[in-house]
Write a protein that binds this DNA or RNA. Structure first.
Lengths: 197, 197
DNA sequence: CAGGTTACCAACGCTGCGGTTGGAATCAGC
DNA sequence: GCTGATTCCAACCGCAGCGTTGGTAACCTG
């Protein structure tokens, strides 16, 4: 059979994303990644170094993808509800990233690309602070806390799906419920951020 | 040395709680639990069966503890903000439970004691629904979604502490910041739930 | 087509972990 | 203090998983 080095690299990365999201860094075996990719596991070592290096590559790639996806939507802070809704959409459409981040959080140690991510969030926070000065957000709120809470609202559903199922009683693949959740998130974000009397 | 069967049992359970919370079911080794307990690992098998059985026992115990702790506080729904605050306090004081639940959620499979937990949450939801009828909560909100969002607000900080650190810039053990977060949670819960014009 | 290089794989070494076992130390009853 | 039961542990077994190695087959250059 003909060779396809770029293809095997890609297949390994995709297989790694699926396996890592499902089972975490320690939980996935190099063999299972190779098997899913239809490739000998030695390829993984020659291409990516070792399991951890591949993990960091996959995680960094997904973070990059999120950043560019958010940038593309062009959603500004003019409607904080839609901002939360877009974040909800992204996590609902790409549950892998949320799971990767959760595994990373649980397994401890410094986050991958801590500096870049910190800068990203701090920038978001400063935009919220600017919106406060314009009176579009309640001035009593700590903008960092608000950003954090919006992420919580948007991501929590994917983070603890079993809890969501127990609380709401909805099946995991209920599209109607997904839509209702989105509307709730949008509404809740507005309630959180709007200036009150 | 004299024997202390109840003591070794307890030491094993405590060691298991710490190790499981830190590394999850698959990540912790039976040897590490035994070593932390200062006991031979064979004791674990004769007392608890195997690793998974001990995991389920530990998780069920912590859930029980949370249930009785919440019941003891006597916090009703009269002030939904304080309700969220109490939940925040519990998770801040007992981060192990949150981590156990997170590991459980990630590793998939049916939750431990799914029926009991579902009943617990559904009961909470029905109380919120009753509060809606009395006009103390906004009638437009789905009470299940509201319950879920309150848990998100209270638990998210412990769930993704690295994210919290990146967004807020606060050190993990900053007590002042912890207190500010609590006030934010209480305030945010009230904003979420209050009837609006 | 000859020689060298590159992509690939089957099979292996080794370590670490879940679970077991055989026996030693401690206790309780007499 | 003797006997049987109970608690405890050091050592072991089997296996799974990470990372490597020796070798084969496809490609490239002349």
């Amino acid at each position: 059979m003909a060779w396809d080095t770029e293809g095997t690299r890609r297949r390994l990365r995709e297989a790694a994303l699926a396996e890592f999201a499902a089972r975490g860094l320690d939980g996935t075996t190099v063999g299972s990644i190779a098997e899913r990719a239809g490739v000998n596991k030695e390829r993984l070592y020659s291409y990516f170094g070792d399991k951890r290096a591949l993990w960091e590559l996959v995680l960094a790639t997904e973070l990059e993808r999120l950043a560019s996806a958010v940038a593309l939507t062009g959603v500004s802070l003019s409607d904080i509800g839609e901002f939360a809704g877009a974040t909800y959409d992204y996590h609902a459409a790409h549950p892998e990233l949320g799971r990767l981040l959760q595994w990373e959080g649980l397994q401890g140690g410094p986050p991958v690309d801590a500096l870049g991510r910190t800068a990203h969030y701090r920038e978001k926070v400063s935009r919220f602070a600017a919106a406060q000065l314009e009176g579009r957000l309640d001035a009593d709120l700590d903008p960092a806390h608000l950003v954090f809470a919006l992420i919580a609202l948007a991501a929590w559903w994917q983070t603890v799906p079993q809890l969501a199922e127990m609380v709401t009683g909805a099946a995991p693949d209920d599209l109607r419920e997904r839509d209702r959740r989105r509307r709730f998130v949008v509404d809740a974000a507005r309630r959180l951020a709007s200036p009150t009397a």
